[in-house]
């Protein structure tokens, strides 16, 4: 029986255009478009690419819920056995779109999905546990290799061939551990690993430990009475109307807002646009997330020197670590330049 494959690509690879067409909503075309043609030729007799679903990267990012639902519907209409998305290489929005659609299709349609990304694509961290993400180079120059690896994995999955470890198959680990009987026992393997380590030879652990970055704590504030304190928040508190269009989730930007003439945040001047918590209380009184009122009160009482004139805010839900780190670096540099002494950062 010939298996059915659907491909998902963005407006660029569909030949519709670049950024100026990134707003196009999802659409479906029968058969192959763009890289899907090469996927078909690599799959050969094993499967037929029955359709290609296309969506603009900005549209997907800005209308996550609708775009996801519509793409899943369009893909489902082709009654596929497997979805191939991208590859997205190091394109952030495209990577998130590919990962999101793959995860949603696997969850809702119950079929396997494969995409491909460069290791630093934020989509890897977000979606690698939920779909197969084949390792690719950072740009479309690596298209040939990427499609080869994706198609090879697709054939294996469609045929039901048991998969080896993620490292051997060329995709990012999904966080799944499979039990199997090893020919040598744990004690011997551990000693072998130790000997290799002592000899300076490469070895690979059988149990990855998570790596969290740590930094040494900064020196405390010595003279609070003369200190300038800044407020920062990932709680999604923005001026009413969200003038900078910060995303409700998966934010890729933050806002800088002058509060030098404000003593209090109220539903008239600020609101919460955060997509990850119930906004009822924050919208009744934004100070419960971004505490301007009491900071102003303490400033006036002389508890500390001065409240910095700007607040920095973003939404911390689904935000890629790489973006959050960039926000932090940019905000930190600005605060340093402006002589700020300490930060109070609130998160929801």
């Amino acid at each position: 029986m010939t298996r059915r494959v659907v491909c998902y690509i963005n407006q660029f690879f569909a030949g519709m255009g670049g950024e100026e067409q990134a707003h196009v909503p999802p659409s479906a075309r029968p058969g192959t478009v763009g890289p899907a043609m090469q996927v078909q030729s690599l799959l050969g007799e094993e499967a037929v690419v029955v359709g290609t679903v296309i969506c603009g990267d900005s549209y997907f990012g800005e209308h996550l819920e609708e775009a996801r639902a519509e793409c899943v519907r369009l893909i489902g209409e082709f009654k596929p056995d497997l979805l191939v998305a991208g590859p997205a290489f190091n394109a952030g929005r495209y990577g998130v779109a590919c990962g999101d659609i793959c995860s949603a299709v696997t969850e809702k349609l119950g079929i396997p999905s494969i995409t491909g990304m460069y290791r630093e694509n934020p989509g890897v961290e977000l979606y690698s546990p939920k779909t197969f993400i084949v390792k690719t180079s950072d740009s479309a120059r690596g298209m040939k290799d990427a499609l080869g690896a994706i198609s090879a994995l697709a054939v294996k999955i469609l045929k039901g061939t048991p998969l080896g470890a993620a490292e051997d198959e060329g995709y990012f680990p999904r966080g799944i551990r499979k039990n199997f009987f090893h020919e040598t026992n744990g004690a011997k393997r551990a000693v072998d690993m130790l000997l290799r380590k002592l000899a300076g030879k490469p070895f690979s652990t059988e149990y990855e430990m998570p790596v969290f970055k740590r930094i040494p704590p900064a020196e405390p504030v010595k003279d609070l009475k003369n200190a300038t304190i800044a407020l920062v928040s990932s709680g999604g508190i923005v001026p009413r109307g969200n003038p900078d269009h910060i995303r409700v989730s998966s934010a890729e930007s933050y806002g800088v807002y002058d509060i030098s003439s404000l003593d209090d945040l109220t539903p008239e001047n600020f609101e919460s646009i955060h997509g990850g918590y119930d906004r009822v209380w924050a919208n009744e009184d934004p100070d419960t997330v971004l505490p301007l009122d009491i900071m102003r009160e303490m400033e006036r009482e002389g508890v500390f020197g001065k409240l910095y004139d700007n607040v920095f805010t973003t939404t911390g839900t689904g935000t890629a670590v790489a973006h959050a780190e960039r926000f932090g670096q940019e905000i930190g540099e600005r605060l340093k330049k402006d002589g700020v002494d300490a930060v109070i950062l609130t998160s929801t």
């Binding site: 932090g328 905000i331 700020v340 300490a342 930060v343």
Partner: peptide
């Protein structure tokens, strides 16, 4: 974000 502000500004950040 909290870690990178502290790191790049060299000032204490309380979350």
């Amino acid at each position: 974000m909290v870690r990178e502000i502290e790191n790049s500004a060299g000032i204490p950040v309380v979350q």
